[in-house]
Design a protein around this nucleic acid. Structure first.
Length: 256
DNA sequence: ATGTCAAAATCCTTTTGA
């Protein structure tokens, strides 16, 4: 089973790129973030023609998440993050697919920090951890994947010293990520490539991609039983070089 | 401060978010 995550930065602006990537790499399950489309503007029919069943949680202008599945055995397990009735942002959707519980998330960016947006990021993280702790108690295989907007360590940033005051790399953000891992999750890509420089995002600015000035912020976290089934993983970095690309590249894992 | 995208209102140019 091949599971991928891709922050598309607008599903409709990215549709040709997404369709080509699906055709070339044929993932079984895809988690998408930053749809930037209201619920009714999601291209359900086009993706269905490409072979994917979809569930999605849209929002006007910003955010928005979706899960695609080649198998029709996809059952939605919820949308939105509990713990704050005021929070109406579409940043989480989850499904059970062929026995695997798939959580698709788009964690808040949090800039500028400090400030209310950074506070929202940290409180979202805390609410998310409450949810993931619950999921671990159920004993089913779980994958938490998406855009975490956090670089976990220095190895995940092209120039760590330049990012220490950024919401994606501040100590509070890294601490939140590491306490999440400490619940019992495995960072699948880092486990497969313990010492390699792996990036999943390159800024549109200043030729970041050609300079390889990247960040690793899109992650797969696996529950212990799913960790044992991890076979392979990687980043489709060539997609970042395509015309009209997102600023993120797709990331994928394969489990038995 | 800069630079590049995308969406939407301010509506063919500017503002906001990333």
């Amino acid at each position: 089973m091949k599971i991928a995550t891709y922050n598309v930065n607008s599903i409709n602006a990215r549709l040709p790129v997404v369709l080509r990537w699906l055709e070339e790499t044929k993932p079984d399950v895809v988690c998408l973030q930053e749809l930037k489309a209201p619920q009714e503007k999601f291209p359900e029919q086009v993706l269905r023609s490409a072979g994917y069943h979809a569930i999605w949680h849209g929002q006007k202008s910003y955010n928005g998440v979706a899960i695609l599945s080649r198998s029709e055995d996809i059952q939605e397990m919820g949308r939105g993050l509990a713990g704050d009735p005021e929070d109406v942002q579409s940043r989480l959707i989850e499904a059970q697919i062929n026995g695997v519980h798939v959580v698709c998330l788009y964690l808040p960016n949090g800039n500028p920090a400090p400030g209310p947006k950074f506070d929202y990021k940290l409180s979202w993280f805390e609410r998310f951890k409450q949810h993931t702790a619950q999921l671990l108690t159920k004993g089913t295989p779980v994958v938490l994947t998406g855009d975490y907007n956090v670089m976990p360590t220095d190895l995940d940033v092209y120039k760590p010293e330049r990012w220490v005051n950024d919401a994606l790399f501040r100590p509070e953000s890294r601490e939140a990520f590491h306490t999440l891992l400490a619940q019992g999750w495995t960072d699948a890509i880092r486990k497969l490539y313990p010492t390699e420089t792996i990036y999943t995002y390159w800024d549109y600015f200043r030729d970041a991609f050609s300079r390889n000035a990247g960040l690793r912020i899109d992650h797969f976290l696996l529950s212990p039983d799913l960790d044992k089934r991890l076979l392979a993983g990687g980043v489709d970095r060539n997609v970042r070089g395509w015309e009209k690309s997102s600023d993120h590249a797709p990331v994928w894992i394969e489990i038995s």
